[in-house]
């Protein structure tokens, strides 16, 4: 089985987002960018499925501008076999991304798609579900365990109430939660090897899809900050403040 892993290039999660002065968006100039953490979980799972003999080939794909290639190279260094960059300088919405990925999944004849459950920049949490809908495939979101047995998969999902186990028919689109696995570290020889792995580039326009955005961002602003608090010197002072000042206990 071939597997498609969808990844996104995002602001490094350790870097605090800064809103631009003109309120047009978040400033991404000269800041550290990285592969979305959940996408790393997705790719790690694909690598383990290949190691277990369930998957033969791993294709890592992303939609974005020039530097998206860096993120895909990281995916190749982690161990993906080849990469596809759908090139556009526009910031597409999840629905448009799902349309693009559907075309890639069908062209490549993959038997499964795995993505991160959410990108930590726009926090949409939509793409895997939308792709699953457009392909008409089974859907398994927020996976913390995946077992594939022939044309069926048993998946444990992280839900608000705890853990839910479902069975899905293959082919399926799955989305990775953090507890699915611990992504491996990339070693220097892997980085060198990744430079020689195939990287296809496809111009977005050549796909002939309606990828127009449906939402217009009117402004992006910083939320109100919290007023500075006080440092208390003891537990008894803390309890006194909570009882008599904040009146919350």
């Amino acid at each position: 089985m071939k597997i498609l892993v969808c990844v996104k290039r995002v602001l490094d999660p350790q870097v605090k987002a800064r809103v631009k002065a003109d309120e047009s968006g978040v400033d991404l100039a000269n800041v550290k960018m990285t592969m979305n953490p959940f996408c790393e979980n997705a790719l790690e799972e694909a690598l383990r499925l290949r190691e277990a003999g369930v998957v033969e080939e791993i294709i890592v794909a992303s939609v974005g501008g020039g530097k998206t290639e860096e993120t895909l190279r990281h995916g190749l260094a982690m161990g993906a076999d080849r990469a596809i960059q759908v090139v556009t300088e526009e910031m597409l919405e999840p629905l448009a991304i799902a349309k693009v990925l559907k075309q890639i999944a069908e062209q490549e004849g993959v038997g499964m798609v795995i993505a991160g459950k959410q990108a930590i920049d726009d926090d949409s949490n939509q793409t895997a579900q939308m792709l699953s809908a457009l392909l008409g495939w089974s859907q398994a979101t927020y996976c913390s365990q995946i077992k594939i047995d022939g044309d069926m998969a048993t998946v444990t999902r992280e839900v608000d109430a705890g853990l839910e186990t479902i069975q899905v028919k293959m082919p399926a689109v799955m989305s990775a939660d953090l507890r699915l696995n611990e992504p491996r570290y990339v070693k220097l020889p892997d980085v060198m090897k990744a430079k020689r792995k195939p990287m296809d580039k496809i111009e977005l326009a050549s796909l002939g899809l309606d990828t127009a955005n449906r939402l217009t961002t009117l402004k992006v602003e910083e939320p109100e900050g919290r007023a500075a608090g006080v440092i208390v010197s003891s537990v008894s002072e803390l309890v006194d403040k909570l009882r008599n000042e904040a009146k919350v206990i």
Binding site: A17, V19, V26, D122, D123, V220, E221, E222, P223
Partner: peptide, 8 residues
């Protein structure tokens, strides 16, 4: 967006 560090 961005973990609540910005509001769109």
């Amino acid at each position: 967006i961005y973990a609540g560090n910005a509001l769109a």
